[in-house]
């Protein structure tokens, strides 16, 4: 089983345009034998979208999941700066509509106090948080998480399942930051297919804490599948990374 833990529907605002944008992603995923795509909206792709934009983005993901119930599972994107609206959106999407995870991007760094209520709710609901993080040489965005920020969140909320996005963006330092916190895994999405990174993640975290994800449409399925198939791994490690870890974290929310 292959599960893409990290994908976005596309760049369009309008649902029908998004449906058209998403079609080639489904085709590419199928080409590589990907069984499930965990899809999260990034609303209007702005750092801190308004609540209406957040809801509209999640509605699009719900629609795509309804279009493709055997292939797509939704993650609920929220903006922690609007804490009450974020919690209400989690109620709507995760509790009522069975979305399987919570996506956090660049509205707040992971160690921001406003993320705490979301982390607590995720733990209660037993759904993972997919948190963007990166170490950028030129400096991160004002509210863009570093892996150290993710480690701080993980330390405070050991019951919350956190998947830190972007292995190559985290690099050696990011892996060292999160290694002590068993509630943090890393996805291999985003960045270029830099050789050795997947093996390094397995050495640092163990194969049970590394997940396949693409960041489609920003990155291609082929390049990302190639990171796993090109890495020196045992069959067991490869299967964990490609899908078994994700299935464990999604705890029964796959399919009907």
């Amino acid at each position: 089983m292959i599960i893409d833990f990290h994908a976005h529907p596309g760049y369009s605002e309008n649902l029908n345009a998004l449906r058209a944008e998403f079609r080639p992603a489904l085709r590419a995923a199928k080409h590589h034998g990907v069984d499930w795509i965990c899809l999260s909206s990034l609303a209007d792709w702005k750092e801190s979208p308004a609540p209406a934009q957040v809801r509209k983005g999640n509605d699009a993901v719900l629609a795509l999941a309804a279009d493709h119930p055997e292939e797509v599972i939704g993650f609920c994107y929220v903006n922690p700066r609007q804490t009450d609206e974020a919690l209400a959106e989690i109620e709507r999407c995760v509790v009522q509509r069975r979305m399987a995870g919570i996506k956090l991007w660049q509205a707040c760094a992971a160690n921001d106090a406003r993320v705490e209520a979301i982390a607590k709710r995720a733990a209660e609901l037993k759904v993972p948080i997919l948190q963007h993080a990166w170490y950028k040489t030129g400096g991160n965005g004002a509210n863009e998480s570093t892996p150290a920020n993710v480690a701080a969140l993980a330390a405070k909320h050991p019951e919350t399942i956190i998947v830190m996005a972007h292995l190559t963006g985290a690099g050696e330092r990011g892996l060292a930051d999160v290694a002590p916190y068993p509630n943090v895994s890393v996805d291999i999405s985003g960045g270029e297919p830099e050789a050795g990174m997947v093996e390094l993640a397995v050495r640092r975290l163990g194969a049970r804490r590394v997940l396949f994800g693409t960041d489609s449409p920003i990155r291609s399925y082929g390049a990302t599948v190639g990171k796993v198939m090109g890495a020196r791994l045992t069959v067991r490690q490869r299967n964990l990374i490609l899908g078994e870890n994700a299935r464990r974290l999604l705890a029964g929310r796959l399919g009907a």
């Binding site: 590589h32 297919p193 050789a195 291609s220 082929g222 599948v225 198939m229």
Partner: peptide, 18 residues
């Protein structure tokens, strides 16, 4: 771009274009 990149990534990228 091997050994800087996984060679497999380039192969699958072209392959996927059908």
């Amino acid at each position: 771009c091997w050994p800087f990149f996984y060679a497999r990534s380039a192969v699958l990228k072209v392959d996927e274009a059908e």
